[in-house]
């Protein structure tokens, strides 16, 4: 009613004219403006921290620009062509896939096994669960350097044990062309498996125990319970953490750089290290940015595949 009165406008000659006025722009848009202003800091942050850097990488990728200069020359897709034709590209893609999925598999299996173990009831379960988190709490730099020291020929305890055990394997993995990749995968897996434990454990605790009770009534074995109840319940979360860890492993720079710097013989040079080499080894911002764009696109495709699988798994489970 008030709205309709107001819409009629100011009544001429009437004493009550001042009570009725046409709606101002502010009256109409007030909610939207305030909402937008409250939203603005977040938009600014997203634009500043995400949109701008991505745009900057995209634009840098089509320029030739030295690290020592701010002058840039437009070169179109030449940087992309150079990167794709580089001898290191195919090798790095292969290394990245091995590092990513090798590490993912170990983290998944170890994380799931430990989650199942600590899900069971046993004395001192809480401190054991806490201790499981240790390696996840250690910073990457500390973890990598600690392992490097332990495997060092000069000071390493593991090196010494392998050397004196007569196992017939190299005592210094990070300097061995055949074992360096395995070494970096294991260190990365050691560092990150607690994340899997945490997530799987949370999901295990949410499974309705009546399902297991019903299974027991039907005479289901332990393996059967795992196969038909536990695993399907975990599947959606396995796909979600699988996607996250794939992205994180794919982009991991610290572990490989600190342990091997991509060597020996480029056997552990992953795509992030190749980006680093293009920028700081060859002083080419353009080639580094071009490879970063390629990596971004690969990850987008991988994420889409994961989401598709996730939706399918969710559909089955529901």
């Amino acid at each position: 009613m008030a709205r309709s009165a107001s819409a009629r406008g100011i009544q001429r000659g009437g004493d009550r004219a001042t009570e009725f006025r046409a709606p101002t722009w502010w009256d109409v848009h007030q909610d939207r403006v305030v909402g937008f202003l409250m939203f603005l800091p977040l938009v600014t942050l997203i634009v500043g921290l995400t949109v701008y850097p991505i745009t900057r990488v995209l634009t840098t990728s089509v320029y030739q620009q030295s690290l020592y200069s701010q002058v840039a020359e437009y070169v179109g897709v030449r940087n992309f062509v150079t990167v794709l034709q580089s001898e290191a590209f195919v090798r790095s893609v292969r290394n990245t896939l091995v590092f990513t999925f090798g590490g993912l598999a170990i983290q998944m299996v170890v994380g799931l096994l430990i989650a199942l173990l600590v899900h069971a009831k046993f004395p001192l379960r809480a401190p054991v669960r806490g201790a499981m988190l240790f390696s996840y709490l250690v910073p990457y730099v500390v973890a990598a350097l600690t392992w490097r020291f332990m495997m060092s020929d000069a000071t390493g305890i593991l090196n010494y044990l392998i050397r004196t055990s007569g196992l017939g394997i190299p005592a210094s993995w990070f300097g061995s062309p055949d074992y360096a990749m395995l070494g970096v995968i294991l260190v990365n897996a050691w560092k990150n498996f607690p994340f899997m434990v945490l997530v799987f454990l949370a999901q295990l605790q949410s499974i309705d125990t009546q399902l297991y009770e019903a299974g027991a009534v039907d005479g289901t074995t332990r393996w059967g319970a795992f196969r038909y109840i536990t695993f399907p319940s975990l599947l959606p979360i396995i796909l979600v953490v699988g996607m996250l860890r794939t992205i994180w492993n794919f982009n991991n720079f610290e572990v490989v750089f600190l342990l091997t710097q991509g060597g020996p013989l480029g056997r552990t040079e992953t795509l992030p290290l190749l980006i680093y080499r293009f920028i700081f080894g060859e002083f080419s911002m353009g080639r580094g940015a071009a490879l970063a764009v390629i990596v971004f696109l690969i990850l987008v495709v991988m994420s889409l595949i994961y989401w598709r699988l996730y939706e399918r798994a969710q559909g089955k489970f529901e």
Binding site: S152, D153, A171, S172, F174, G175, S176, T260, Q261
Partner: peptide, 11 residues
């Protein structure tokens, strides 16, 4: 030493 393949200045 065998891990020289990963060595730089300090090792």
């Amino acid at each position: 030493p065998p891990d020289a393949a990963a060595w730089a200045f300090t090792e």
